[in-house]
């Protein structure tokens, strides 16, 4: 499994406009749903679900990386998007540092295995400093997509 198996290419955000935690979540959910088969999905409902999850503990798990996620009954397969912030965003991270790279995941209700494998895949890539550095230097959706297709440690 690679990140390109569940990240929707057209949802990738190479330069986030949002500078707040809530703003990042909303910008990413809007982009994800617009690029997905769930164009009429309820953005606010998914945003609220992700915020509710964040209240149980931040998904900013350190090293400038966050993986906000939720389950949602309207999707029938795991989908996600990736976004890069140039300025960094305060995300209540475990290490207190700002977040620059976000991977947002929405999974079906009943596939915990898929969710765990996606998290494994995301963490394998994002613990690689050179991969994260390349993501942060990328300027376009295409550049990021090429990196995701290659995966970490090519």
């Amino acid at each position: 499994m690679r990140m390109s198996d569940f990240v929707l290419r057209d949802a990738i955000i190479p330069d986030l406009k949002a500078t707040s935690k809530e703003g990042v979540i909303r910008e990413m959910v809007e982009s994800l749903l617009a690029a997905s088969a769930y164009k009429n999905g309820d953005v606010e409902e998914v945003v609220r679900a992700i915020q509710k999850r964040e209240m149980l503990g931040s998904t900013g798990i350190g090293r400038g990386v966050a993986i906000p996620h939720t389950k949602h009954s309207s999707v029938d397969r795991l989908i996600g998007t990736i976004a890069v912030s140039r300025t960094g965003v305060a995300f209540d991270s475990l290490d207190g540092e700002p977040v620059y790279v976000f991977v947002l995941l929405v999974s079906p209700q009943d596939r915990p295995g898929d969710h765990l494998r996606a998290l494994e895949n995301v963490s394998r890539s994002l613990r690689d400093d050179s991969f994260v550095g390349a993501l942060r230097r990328a300027r376009t959706r295409e550049e990021i997509w090429t990196l995701l297709e290659g995966g970490a440690n090519p």
Binding site: L116, E120, S123
Partner: peptide, 13 residues
């Protein structure tokens, strides 16, 4: 001590 490392386990039930 590393969340990113721990996620690599992908440990199911």
């Amino acid at each position: 001590k590393s969340p990113l490392d721990l996620l690599l386990l992908a440990a199911e039930q």
